[in-house]
């Protein structure tokens, strides 16, 4: 009887600890990753090729409109300024070749002159990506469904205009307080970039060649990089800006 009780007591602690540790490890190391799906961007877009290679500015694609709204992702109209494939001409050529315009693979394989002659890229990989964009989106008149790493839901109103005059240099004073909000390395550069995009967006995206996968939360649909409300609030509070509900919600 004594013996059993002893073993019971001992057995009472060990399994408990095993269970405790197991879920602790799982809960910290494994489970958080399960919340996210990895989704690739619809086509390979290299910022490096456009910025470094073609010497484009950020503002070439991401600019303010006259009414103060921000253009965000460029539309086909903007892209077509350089990727000068005439959709009508291309569609006619596709029809002539007897290809179903929704059969992208066939079009890409067919090497249609109206498309191929107007591709701007140098090497094969890039050309393939450009061709994919032209065939799947540009000539179809469909906008590319880019995935926004800084995705915010419809109930959030964000004004780029209100943040455009903020500089990284100014914000560097608050780097300690903002260590959970902004990637600390943003403040460590020798010379700060003119634009303040790095504060919230993927750091140095203009140098990026292969865009990273978009990590989508399986429950909420948010990006892993979606800035949560407390981050916005922290910075607003530090900068003496209002944190009223309607400052950011709609």
């Amino acid at each position: 009887m004594e013996e059993r009780r002893a073993s019971k007591r001992c057995g009472g602690v060990l399994p408990f600890i095993i269970g405790f540790l197991a879920t602790c490890v799982l809960g910290w190391a494994v489970i958080p990753g399960l919340f996210f799906d990895k989704v690739e961007q619809p086509v390979w877009f290299s910022h490096a090729v456009h910025v470094d290679g073609q010497g484009m500015d950020c503002e070439s694609c991401h600019y303010f409109r006259d009414d103060g709204s921000y253009a965000g992702f460029p539309t086909n109209e903007v892209c077509a300024e350089c990727h000068a494939v005439d959709p009508e001409e291309a569609m006619e050529a596709i029809a002539e070749a007897g290809i179903d315009p929704s059969d992208y693979d066939a079009i890409m394989k067919a090497e249609i002159g109206a498309i191929e002659d107007n591709l701007a890229s140098g090497d094969d990989d890039m050309m393939a990506a450009e061709r994919e964009y032209v065939v799947k989106y540009l000539i179809q008149g469909k906008e590319v469904p880019w995935l926004n790493y800084q995705f915010q839901p419809d109930n959030v109103y964000f004004s780029h205009a209100a943040h455009k005059d903020m500089t990284i240099e100014d914000m560097a004073e608050l780097k300690k307080e903002l260590s959970d909000v902004v990637d600390p390395s943003v403040f460590e550069a020798e010379e700060f970039p003119e634009q303040n995009c790095n504060l919230c967006h993927m750091k140095d995206i203009h140098l990026n060649d292969v865009p990273p996968a978009f990590q989508r939360n399986i429950l909420s649909g948010y990006s892993k990089m979606t800035m949560k409300m407390w981050k916005c609030e922290r910075c607003h509070a530090l900068k003496g800006q209002p944190n009223a509900c309607y400052t950011c919600h709609k």
């Binding site: 303010f64 006259d66 009414d67 103060g68 709204s69 109103y157 004004s159 205009a161 209100a162 455009k164 309607y246 709609k250």
Partner: peptide, 18 residues
């Protein structure tokens, strides 16, 4: 009703732009 609040935001954006 929120007095079309996002129009307020747009108006402020326009003012900033101007």
């Amino acid at each position: 009703c929120n007095f079309c609040h996002s129009r307020y935001m747009e108006a402020k954006n326009q003012a900033r732009m101007d």
